[in-house]
């Protein structure tokens, strides 16, 4: 096999919901420690695609994924893949902040606890502190770690979810429209955070905001009706799109 410099490679990925095909032949290579943005109108399949990468579609009844998805040159859909281990390596942040109805501390400690990452209580404290600091939430919550995660504001909840995801030490972060439920100020904080996080993690972000994709990402893929229309360096996509549909979308004529 030819060595592959890409972190994630998908070849001919098709996804069906029952009889309805949601994704057609997606071929995409995602580089390590870069931000890759997926844009496109609602229902174009970008969320479906990102959920293929950590096999979240397994949770959906009647959803069938075909094709090959290689992460670090391992086929994640092969029967040998341990799904628990896979998901531990890939953090995910969802559209709506979904902290557990537990304390802030327990939210972040959830992953390390189930994976046995901490040897002692001090260890766990360190992981929680480090994750909250990386997620830029530490200063706001350090004196109330026992408060419920749901007592935080929307933007803080989303950063808590990011802290929860990075507490298990993943190397990939999947973000499914992480800012769509947030106001512009909270969005700016999260974007700043993503810029810092990309030094450590490979980030795939689904977004509705083209400005966000332009600000954050190195590469951008444009999806339309379940097909990947164009995939290129972000500046190329926004200044010099090759495909007319991409141009129509980014100039606001469709979508």
């Amino acid at each position: 096999m030819i060595p592959n410099q890409y972190k994630i490679t998908t070849s001919n990925v098709n996804v069906d919901y029952g009889n309805k095909r949601a994704l057609h032949d997606i071929n995409l290579q995602i580089e390590e420690k870069e931000v890759t943005a997926l844009i496109g109108p609602s229902g174009c399949g970008k969320s479906t695609f990102i959920r293929c990468l950590n096999r979240m579609n397994d949770l959906i009844e009647g959803c069938k994924v075909e094709g090959k998805i290689m992460i670090d040159e391992v086929d994640i859909n092969s029967p040998d893949t341990d799904i628990v281990e896979l998901r531990a390596r890939i953090g995910m942040v969802f559209q709506k902040p979904n902290p557990f109805p537990k304390s802030i501390y327990d939210n972040v400690a959830y992953g390390p606890r189930i994976h046995g990452l901490a040897k002692s209580n001090e260890d766990l404290d360190n992981i929680v502190t480090k994750s909250l600091k990386r997620a830029g939430l530490w200063n706001e919550v350090e004196d109330r770690l026992d408060a419920s995660g749901l007592s935080l504001s929307g933007g803080q909840q989303q950063r808590l979810c990011i802290a929860r995801a990075i507490a298990v030490n993943p190397d990939i972060l999947l973000m499914d429209e992480p800012c769509s439920a947030l106001d512009p100020i909270a969005t700016a904080v999260i974007e700043e955070l993503i810029n810092e996080l990309k030094e450590r993690y490979t980030i795939v972000i689904v977004t509705h905001s083209m400005q966000q994709a332009a600000r954050l990402s190195e590469k951008t893929a444009y999806f339309h009706l379940g097909k990947m229309i164009e995939y290129d360096i972000t500046s190329n996509i926004f200044t010099n799109p090759k495909h007319e549909m991409t141009e129509a979308y980014i100039s606001g004529r469709i979508g």
Partner: peptide, 27 residues
Amino acid sequence: VPQSLREGSAALGSTQSETVKLVILPA
């Protein structure tokens, strides 16, 4: 119990029974 909690727990790599025990039942 919202599906988002199940997904959040699964995305962290918990097994189904861990999700039930640690997230669903407390909620």
